[in-house]
């Protein structure tokens, strides 16, 4: 078999170069404390990016993911304020996040509305609902058991790793994964192959919503505050990470390992820039440039292939 230069190998090389560079130049980068912090930040965006990868592989996009993070966080806060027990609280919030995803899936799969439009509208709507529930304020009264969960510093990274492994397995090795791939590659051909396109899309958007909910639980546990706008920065980061990882926006293929590498690259860049004291405005510019470079690279690789 001929060796094919895949985008994720380039990203892996970039990541290794960044880690080596920061380790040499920044004394505080390779410390256990900083790496734990890095893993914490990485896990939250990472979980959202996993769902985004599958949505993008069906030639869709989920612009409402960050709003679902905010809404789930606010749900957790509301339940905590009404003395619901820890496990019920988390379960109900994840159900709410899944319901948001189902709403997207119904509109995209069953009504045939374009994913950009659907999730643009639900992005506004879900954020509005979160604002209405919280009246624009923050919930910060959480039970002690909740704070205890936040103490375990490695749990988020483990959750992320487990979910990434499970999804990669499901995508590569199960019938469901093949269906997702087929729907993304050619919806008409998929339909003629007796694949239920609508149900497949519904499942993918439900998964994206639920994963955004998981990210919200991780985030809310960490900061012990629930607010409608907590996840806002995650949307751009997640899309950028997926694209950098080599999943094309046209759909038809997905690289979950590439997404993990993409998320890690952005996390390392932002962590390193923070340590180096670069202003947040310049970081915004830098992540925009990285995104452009990533897609430019992606387009170039696609053209080289054909």
């Amino acid at each position: 078999m001929r060796f094919r230069l895949e985008q994720r190998w380039i990203v892996l090389a970039l990541l290794l170069a960044l880690v080596t560079g920061f380790s040499v130049s920044l004394a505080r980068f390779p410390t256990a404390n900083n790496l734990t912090q890095l893993a914490l930040q990485l896990a939250e965006v990472g979980v959202v990016s996993l769902g985004m990868t599958l949505v993008i592989s069906t030639a869709g996009i989920d612009l409402s993911a960050a709003s679902v993070v905010g809404l789930t966080s606010v749900c957790l806060g509301w339940f905590a304020a009404h003395d619901v027990s820890l496990l019920t609280m988390i379960l109900l919030s994840l159900l709410a996040a899944g319901a948001c995803g189902l709403a997207n899936g119904l509109l995209v799969g069953y009504l045939g509305i374009s994913p950009i439009l659907t999730t643009l509208a639900t992005m506004v709507l879900f954020n509005g609902v979160a604002l209405a529930i919280s009246r624009g304020e923050a919930f910060s009264r959480f039970p002690d058991s909740f704070a205890l969960l936040g103490q375990s510093e490695l749990a988020p990274a483990l959750v992320f790793a487990a979910l990434a492994a499970a999804l990669a397995f499901a995508y590569r090795r199960t019938l469901w994964g093949r269906r997702v791939l087929a729907v993304g590659a050619n919806p008409v051909a998929a339909e003629f192959s007796t694949i239920n396109r609508r149900a497949t899309l519904l499942s993918v958007y439900w998964l994206s919503g639920t994963l955004a909910g998981v990210a919200a639980v991780l985030l809310t546990v960490r900061v012990a505050t629930a607010k409608a706008d907590v996840g806002q920065a995650m949307l751009l980061q997640a899309i950028s990470a997926v694209v950098l990882g080599g999943t094309p926006l046209e759909g038809g293929r997905a690289s979950l390992s590439g997404t993990v590498l993409g998320v890690a690259t952005f996390a390392v860049v932002s962590n390193g820039m923070n340590l180096a004291g670069v202003s947040p405005f310049r970081q915004t510019v830098a992540s925009g440039l990285v995104l452009l470079a990533a897609v430019g690279l992606n387009q170039w690789m696609l053209r080289r292939e054909s």
């Binding site: 509208a121 954020n127 509005g128 604002l131 209405a132």
Partner: peptide, 12 residues
Amino acid sequence: YWQQVVTGAFLL
């Protein structure tokens, strides 16, 4: 804080 719900619903 309710205005955005209404805007979102209209958009949808």
